[in-house]
C-alpha cells in the first residue's frame, strides 16, 4: 500500500451560531493514499467544504490530528500555514476565484511569486501550465473575457503551477455545463494519472464522482461508506 498523503484523526470542527454549538465534524477519522483521486460526496451541509478547508489549511480545527503531506498542520502558526499552503496544496473552487484585474497568465503566476523562481522562470512555468490546460492562446485574457469552463481551467493551471502534492477541488464542475465539466474532469484525471497528484474533489454529481478512483461519503459530520472504482494500491 502506498504512503498516506492525508491522515485525519478524531478531527472535530464546531461552529458557534447564536448560543448554539454546531458540531460540523465529529471526531472524524480518514486516511487518503498518495497519488489517488478521491471524490467526496454527501448532502448539503454535511461538512464537505469544512473538511476540505481544514485539510487545505484554510481553516483551523477545534480538535484532532491533521497530517497532510507529512506535516502536522494543526500545529502550525498562521504564517507557517500560509507558507505550507503555498508549497503543498493547490485549490480549485466552484466559483473559480480568479483575480479579475489580472490576466490568465498573471493569475497563474501569482502563487509562483511565493517561490524563489526568477520572473522569466515564473512566466515560463505559468505558460507551461496554461498550455497543459489547453489555454495557450488565452494567456492575456482577463477572467471576464473567458467562459466559465475556461476560467476553471485557468484556476486549475494556477493550482498546479507550483507543482503541489495535493489538489483540493470544491465542486469544480458545479457551475459548468456538461461539456466544460467533462473537460475539467478529464484534466483532473490526467493530473492524477500523469503527474501523480493526490486529488480530493467535492462533488454532488455522481457522474463526476465516477471519474475518481474512490468515493468517500460524508453524512452529518460522520464518515460513511467508501467505494473503490479501482482497487486500492493498484498500479495506476
Amino acid at each position: 500500500m502506498a504512503e498516506s498523503m492525508i491522515r485525519v484523526r478524531k478531527l472535530t470542527k464546531r461552529y458557534q451560531r447564536g448560543g448554539e454549538t454546531l458540531t460540523v465534524l465529529d471526531k472524524l477519522d480518514l486516511e487518503m493514499e498518495e497519488g489517488r483521486f478521491y471524490a467526496l460526496m454527501g448532502p448539503s451541509g454535511s461538512g464537505k467544504t469544512t473538511l476540505l478547508n481544514l485539510v487545505g489549511g484554510l481553516d483551523t480545527a477545534d480538535d484532532g490530528e491533521l497530517i497532510v503531506a507529512g506535516e502536522n498542520i494543526a500545529e502550525l502558526s498562521a504564517d507557517e500555514l500560509a507558507h505550507w499552503r503555498a508549497a503543498n496544496v493547490g485549490f480549485v473552487f466552484q466559483g473559480f476565484n480568479l483575480i479579475g484585474v489580472l490576466t490568465a497568465r498573471e493569475n497563474v503566476e501569482l502563487p509562483l511569486k511565493l517561490t524563489p523562481l526568477s520572473s522569466s522562470q515564473r512566466r515560463q512555468q505559468a505558460e507551461t501550465a496554461l498550455k497543459l490546460v489547453g489555454l495557450g492562446d488565452r494567456m492575456d485574457h482577463r477572467p471576464r473575457q473567458l467562459s466559465g469552463g475556461q476560467e476553471q481551467r485557468v484556476a486549475i493551471a494556477r493550482a498546479i503551477a507550483t507543482d503541489p502534492k495535493v489538489i483540493l477541488a470544491d465542486e469544480p464542475t458545479g457551475d459548468l455545463d456538461r461539456k466544460s465539466a467533462e473537460q475539467v474532469l478529464d484534466l483532473l484525471v490526467r493530473l492524477n494519472r500523469e503527474f501523480k497528484k493526490t486529488i480530493l474533489m467535492v462533488t454532488h454529481d455522481p457522474a463526476a464522482a465516477e471519474r475518481a478512483q474512490s468515493i468517500v461519503h460524508l453524512d452529518k459530520g460522520q464518515l460513511g461508506r467508501i467505494e473503490h472504482n479501482q482497487p486500492v494500491g493498484a498500479a495506476r
Binding site: L58, A86, N97, I99, G100, L114
Partner: peptide, 15 residues
C-alpha cells in the same frame, strides 16, 4: 476583500 481571500488561500501571508 474577496481578492484578499484568494491571495491568502494561495499562501500569501497576512502581512
Amino acid at each position: 476583500t474577496h481578492d484578499v481571500g484568494i491571495l491568502k488561500a494561495l499562501g500569501f501571508t497576512n502581512s
